[in-house]
Amino acid sequence: MSCEWGHNNCKNEGVKCELCVVRDFHYDPIVRKTPKPMAKRQQRQDKRMGSSFEYKNHVSNQNLLTDVSSRMTPNSGAGRVKGDEEIRGIINIMEELKTKVKEQAPGKQSFTIKREWLDKLHREAMAVNKEFWYLKFAFHEHDNDVYVIVEQDIIMSMVKTMVEDRKKVNEAALKQDIAEKERRLKEAENIKLLAEIDVLKARLKQYEPDPEQIH
């Protein structure tokens, strides 16, 4: 269950939430080790096959994504950190990148997706508790068009998340619209009351005696 006090890193989430009647009473933060920054040479393209495609993807991720970090994995995932690109933060994703470097005959473009790539990506992503994982590919290393292969369950989870988020946005917009109309109604009611008071004052003046006639 979600935390009433707004925490998303509590060890007791879903365990002692109903007992946490005072702010932070059972709050036990999960301490995450800050990953060591990757060496600069690992964050740029090298002479490996496909490294230009990997680096271009890395730069694109960095320019597009905020509130998360996107980094190229050391040795293209051959070490402890798997995948070719790792997105961390508010969302955790593993990306695998594949491309061709040889030009094909004019007018002919094809790319073979191997099942072993997808199985390996699924296995490694699950092992490190990634929320999403997918394979990005381009028909040629320097193509601007990049495509994504993703498992059906993952894409439908993304669709469901977008649907729920948009429902919340629409509900919030509706509540704001109602609140604005209620504000304008109260404002109109106040103006009406002030106008009625002015009318009553004017009528009272009709019955006030003329000081000159009294004397």
Results as ranks from 00 to 15, higher is better:
68 V>F: 04
211 P>K: 00
183 R>H: 10
207 Y>G: 00
182 E>Q: 09
61 N>Q: 10
78 A>C: 06
167 K>Y: 13
118 L>E: 07
106 P>W: 13
183 R>F: 13
142 H>C: 11
141 E>G: 07
147 Y>E: 12
200 L>E: 08
93 I>S: 11
105 A>R: 15
38 M>W: 04
101 V>W: 06
157 S>D: 12
97 L>A: 11
184 R>M: 14
110 S>T: 02
23 R>T: 03
157 S>T: 13
129 N>M: 11
126 M>W: 00
27 Y>T: 11
105 A>P: 04
108 K>A: 08
131 E>M: 06
124 E>T: 03
165 D>C: 13
116 E>T: 13
197 I>P: 01
199 V>D: 12
206 Q>V: 00
112 T>P: 09
192 K>E: 09
82 K>L: 04
53 F>W: 05
117 W>T: 02
6 G>T: 07
37 P>N: 09
115 R>T: 01
90 I>P: 09
44 R>Y: 06
215 H>T: 00
31 V>A: 14
117 W>P: 00
182 E>V: 04
78 A>G: 07
187 E>H: 03
186 K>Y: 05
90 I>R: 12
38 M>K: 05
113 I>T: 04
81 V>I: 12
96 E>R: 12
25 F>N: 04
65 L>P: 09
63 N>C: 13
177 D>Q: 13
60 S>K: 14
162 M>P: 11
67 D>Q: 14
152 Q>N: 08
179 A>S: 12
103 E>T: 15
31 V>R: 14
19 L>I: 02
13 E>G: 02
79 G>M: 07
176 Q>Y: 08
136 K>S: 07
5 W>M: 05
50 G>N: 05
124 E>L: 02
95 E>C: 13
27 Y>V: 11
201 K>L: 05
127 A>N: 11
114 K>F: 14
11 K>C: 05
74 P>F: 13
64 L>Y: 01
149 I>V: 10
148 V>C: 08
98 K>Q: 06
171 E>W: 14
110 S>F: 03
79 G>K: 06
36 K>R: 12
23 R>P: 01
121 L>F: 02
83 G>R: 04
189 E>I: 04
99 T>L: 04
137 F>P: 03
25 F>D: 03
146 V>A: 01
16 K>W: 02
106 P>R: 08
189 E>A: 07
98 K>M: 01
109 Q>S: 15
215 H>V: 00
5 W>E: 05
129 N>W: 14
58 H>V: 04
185 L>W: 15
166 R>L: 06
74 P>R: 11
28 D>N: 13
97 L>R: 11
